[in-house]
Amino acid sequence: MVQLIRSLGAYGMREILSVGRMGIFFLYTMRGMFVAPGKFWPVVKHIEFIGTKSIFVIGFTAAFSGMVLGLQGYYTLSKFASEGLLGSAVALTLIRELGPVLTALMVSGRAGSAITAEIGIMRIEEQIDALDCMAIDPYAYMITPRFIACLIALPLLTAFCDVVGIFGGYAIGVDLLGVSAGAFWDGVYSSVVWKDVYMGIIKSAVFSVLIIWICTYKGFYSGVDEGSFGPEQVSRATTDAVVISSISILVSDYIITSIML
């Protein structure tokens, strides 16, 4: 019994400690914006990695999600003989929910895991210590550029995802199932208002902070708690990072929606 309470206490302490450490990690990263070295080229490089290289996989996901939405939407709406609303159904679903969430999940799986692994390897190979010893701020050098890059790339990818998804829905709804093209686009124009768009942008901005924060943090501290630095710690950190960031994307999506609706 005492053992149980003790281990519970230790667990609690550890979790509280890591929450505090995450906060400090975030503050150092923010401070990194004002500390040498220059950020421009590193940010460009990371945008290429997080953004450009994700375009294909996100386009693919978006196209098929849009097509499925077209299919399902048509099937459901035809029960009420209101197939004309297909355009607004597809567009609203994508812009408000699916676009930001799908993009964030794909990015956290593709780029986030890679970032955790990369930083984790830097940790276990003492590269972070080496930066410290060269009097270079490791946060400013490797974390901050990734933060900025992700913050820029994710909203853009989300917009791309929305557009591709809507065309996917159009392809199924109009070309395959015979909804009139005019009705489809009219639905899109009349139902999507500015608030929907900026809700999507805010969501993707929040998701991008969550993804990059969790993924870089997990990499940065991989093996630190265990006190051992090996490949196993990096692989665990990578798994943790993807699982935790996916969960927090979905949870925060619900919270943001409930606040903003």
């Binding site: 830097m122 190979e125 003492e126 590269q127 210590d129 010893c133």
Partner: peptide, 13 residues
């Protein structure tokens, strides 16, 4: 100071 770490600690990228 300059430090050489055991594994070299070069940046892989």
């Amino acid at each position: 100071i300059g430090v050489l770490f055991q594994g070299g600690a070069l940046f892989n990228s």
